[in-house]
């Protein structure tokens, strides 16, 4: 017999994601999911963001990696609570992993949670974690052609960080073409040029994020 189902394939993941988001909203916590290739500077961007915003907001970090806890240790060394998720080979985070990580955090004491997704430009873009915004980081050495190859991650992002901007003169990176392609994919996402390890450009990104944190605190949501 034919049975009509008509539901999302990832319904289980999306249901848990909605529950995560409801918990965050209840406590006025803004959650951002950072996605990028391995080595693009996710952890450096997180550390720079912490330094820019730690005087204003209580921040925690959820680190997603296939293995190891080196990233969580780097964050904890800065005096910020960090939960390490090891996916054990999986190429992306899912909402159930975030729920378990969040269970170890005190949401009532937090304003901002930064999730570092597994280094990958493909899989994380299809999975809702319950975050309020996905943000992708592309680093200049990866090349300006990446939006052609990985369009979905640019489409689902609410902002794009162009990291390692200080290496622009060394690499054959066509910034005008990059901006044009990203605009065609996603006309509303701002692009923030940044050199996370040098602190350049961090302020503009941090202020954008702070605006979102303020909206979450006052219940205006994401």
């Amino acid at each position: 017999m034919q049975i009509e189902i008509e539901q999302r394939i990832l319904a289980a993941n999306e249901r848990l994601a909605a529950e995560n988001r409801a918990r965050f909203d209840e406590h006025g916590v803004f959650v951002v999911d950072l996605m990028a290739s391995p080595g693009a500077g996710k952890t450096s961007t997180i550390l720079a963001t912490i330094e820019a915003l730690r005087d204003r907001y209580a921040i925690a970090v959820i680190e997603g990696d296939i293995a190891s806890k080196v990233d969580a240790e780097k964050v904890r060394a800065h005096g910020i609570p960090a939960v390490q998720i090891n996916t054990g080979g999986a190429c992306h985070l899912e909402s159930a992993m975030i729920r378990r990580a969040v269970d170890t955090l005190d949401l009532a004491e937090l304003d901002l949670i930064i999730i570092e997704n597994v280094g990958n430009l493909v899989c994380p873009s299809d999975f809702d974690l319950g975050e309020h915004a996905k943000v992708m980081i592309l680093s200049v050495p990866e090349g300006h052609d990446k939006p052609y190859k990985y369009p979905n991650i640019f489409q689902v992002s609410q902002a794009v960080i162009l990291n390692k901007y200080d290496t622009m003169s060394v690499f054959d990176f066509d910034e005008a073409e990059f901006r044009e392609v990203v605009r065609g994919l996603n006309g509303l996402a701002p692009i923030f040029p940044m050199s996370a390890t040098k602190g350049e450009g961090v302020q503009a990104w941090a202020e954008w994020l702070a605006g979102r944190v303020e909206d979450a605190k006052t219940g205006r949501g994401a």
């Binding site: 017999m1 034919q2 049975i3 009509e4 189902i5 008509e6 539901q7 999302r8 394939i9 990832l10 299809d126």
Partner: peptide
Amino acid sequence: ELDINRIDAD
């Protein structure tokens, strides 16, 4: 979309 539409089962 990532949708499951229908199945045929007995």
